[in-house]
């Protein structure tokens, strides 16, 4: 189990190699990589294309929140390895922002736990996105879609 919050980019291949090294019980590794996408491309008035975003977080609480989420995944599924790497600071479209990797003897647990971790970290870890657009800076609002995605795991088990 490992959680890292860092400003620097990460090397997905190297991270996965390190995560699985020496553990022969892992039969499946599910991986999610979140990228900064070019958002809010709208015609007309503002044309507020996003040139970059800055991710603010709450040092100290962020690590605790991610560790709690990771521990919860390990309680719910039989996992052999989990890794969450989340970046903060300024990032441009195309850059990697988050890595979630889950290793388990079988693929079902790996897929499910990976999806669970991504859903929960979006709504339970203290990160805030500030978009840098030609019209100025804009804080991103939370989406009800993310809340719904996170809440379905409450109903399943809790």
């Amino acid at each position: 189990m490992a959680v890292r919050v860092q400003e620097a980019d990460f090397d997905v291949g190297a991270e996965l190699d390190r995560l699985t090294a020496g553990n022969r019980k892992i039969g499946g590794l599910a991986v999610f990589v979140g990228l900064v996408r070019e958002m809010h491309v709208r015609e007309g008035y503002h044309k507020d294309r996003v040139d970059a975003l800055t991710l603010e977080h709450y040092p100290g609480m962020t690590e605790k929140a991610l560790e709690d989420i990771e521990a919860e995944a390990n309680k719910r599924w039989p996992l052999e390895a989990t890794l969450i790497v989340h970046r903060y600071g300024r990032m441009e479209p195309g850059e990697r922002i988050v890595l979630v990797a889950v290793g388990s003897p079988h693929r079902e647990a790996a897929f499910e736990a990976c999806e669970f971790l991504v859903d929960w970290l979006k709504t339970k870890a203290p990160f805030w996105k500030l978009e840098d657009t030609p019209a100025g800076e804009k804080w991103v609002g939370a989406t009800t879609g993310d809340d719904t995605a996170a809440a379905r795991w409450d109903k399943k088990k809790a």
């Binding site: 979140g34 991710l55 977080h57 709450y58 609480m61 989340h86 922002i97 988050v98 991504v118 970290l121 979006k122 709504t123 339970k124 870890a125 203290p126 990160f127 805030w128 996105k129 804080w139 991103v140 609002g141 939370a142 993310d146």
Partner: peptide, 10 residues
């Protein structure tokens, strides 16, 4: 004690 808007990470 901290106060913050809804989280938007990931």
């Amino acid at each position: 004690v901290a106060f913050f808007p809804p989280f938007t990470g990931g």
